[in-house]
Design a protein around this nucleic acid. Sequence first.
DNA 1: TAGGTTTACGCCTGAGAGTCGAAAACCGTG
DNA 2: CACGGTTTTCGACTCTCAGGCGTAAACCTA
Lengths: 229, 229
Amino acid sequence: MTPAATTPAQTTVAVVLQVRDGSLQVLLWQRAKEPQSGRWALPGGTLARGESLDDSIRRHLAAKVDVQELAHLEQLETRVDGAAPVDWQVTTAFLGLVPSHLDPAIPPDTSWHPLDGLPQLAFDSGTTIERGRDRLRAKLSYTNLGFALAPPAFSISELRAIYVAALGHAISPTNLQRVLLRRGVLEQTGAVRPPGPSGGRPAALFCFRVRSLAITDQFAVLRPRRGGD
Amino acid sequence: MTPAATTPAQTTVAVVLQVRDGSLQVLLWQRAKEPQSGRWALPGGTLARGESLDDSIRRHLAAKVDVQELAHLEQLETRVDGAAPVDWQVTTAFLGLVPSHLDPAIPPDTSWHPLDGLPQLAFDSGTTIERGRDRLRAKLSYTNLGFALAPPAFSISELRAIYVAALGHAISPTNLQRVLLRRGVLEQTGAVRPPGPSGGRPAALFCFRVRSLAITDQFAVLRPRRGGD
DNA sequence: TAGGTTTACGCCTGAGAGTCGAAAACCGTG
DNA sequence: CACGGTTTTCGACTCTCAGGCGTAAACCTA
């Protein structure tokens, strides 16, 4: 191999999302040093030898948030970030999801920000965050990814509130239950939650049948024909 | 910055797929030097300073195939490949698609291989190829990605043959036309192709309305409600 | 003109999303 | 204990669209 600076630095960052207070929020930390001092950035850091990209982002996230509470982690995309020898680096972005009932401890330079109304961002974190949000919205529709946003047990109303916050638009509560049950994504726990102070019928509690990513829908045209093959 | 070998080498590889002779095939080249001499590998190479990952894979592909004929190129995933200082590298894999009517010139060490019945592969190219195939199959169902496999104009039968080869299972010819037309993916050119030597009704020719990636299907539960929002 | 081949287009069916409304189960108050 | 208010739950209906089948259209050869 030839001298230094013939290879870029390799870094990982993560878009960690959680539904908090009815809105989808992202975990950011405020830079204290130049460059981009004072602006908000995605958590992450450089790759160490011998670790996978997965290991790397988990290690860096551990400094900002309890990694145990990440219910899902997947790769988004990789991008080249600088051109000069000093700032030439390749960044691999991840998407991380935290269930809405958790409130992990975070250091003072770190906080959650709603996706509408982000502060001044460092670098081009904005496009990365958008990509993470889009990936989440897409996968909520054709996978069981909701398990990564929802608590272990929940009523349909609570699940609907989470979906509404993540998707950004209203959805019919009766359809959500029927569709997710029909696909075998949800199952009834048998328990019920007593109603709130304003009364109402007790809500039946549900949980996700499997809590790891699974595709629940196959498109029609490409589905194998009934009889043959 | 600190001494060399604190950063991995950055490389790009591509899974270039084309429907040839009724089967889905991948472009591979045979290694002449160690390591893994004699085995077949995915085209690619190292990242140069100042270029994006996209630029990089296009530059390396240009040595194996006419890049102009790539109808689609997208990122698959990034992986860490070695741990020792000498072979520590980060590899970003791409998926490239070539329309079935083209037969680009390729160098003597390079050739097409059907996905069923691959030769001895170098490294773990096999899993990367599988990932490319899976991505293609998934996107054929909910996007207009067929444009990247099909010629500029085609009959429904020809398009069906391409879909069958790419998807790996039979599909109904009458449904394919109706579904793709209903979604606005295809449009009729008005031209017809004269029948072959064995006779038959002339086939109407179709083309893709847009020849860049667009999502054609949104899943139901997450679709915004008609009235509100 | 007759038979064979391929494409095109029409109906019918069924599954599942979308909507609406009523019933069930709880609260408070008088 | 009856009554209105609130929230959840369930059933019935409609509508869209995939899937399948049969037939007509358009061409060839003989």
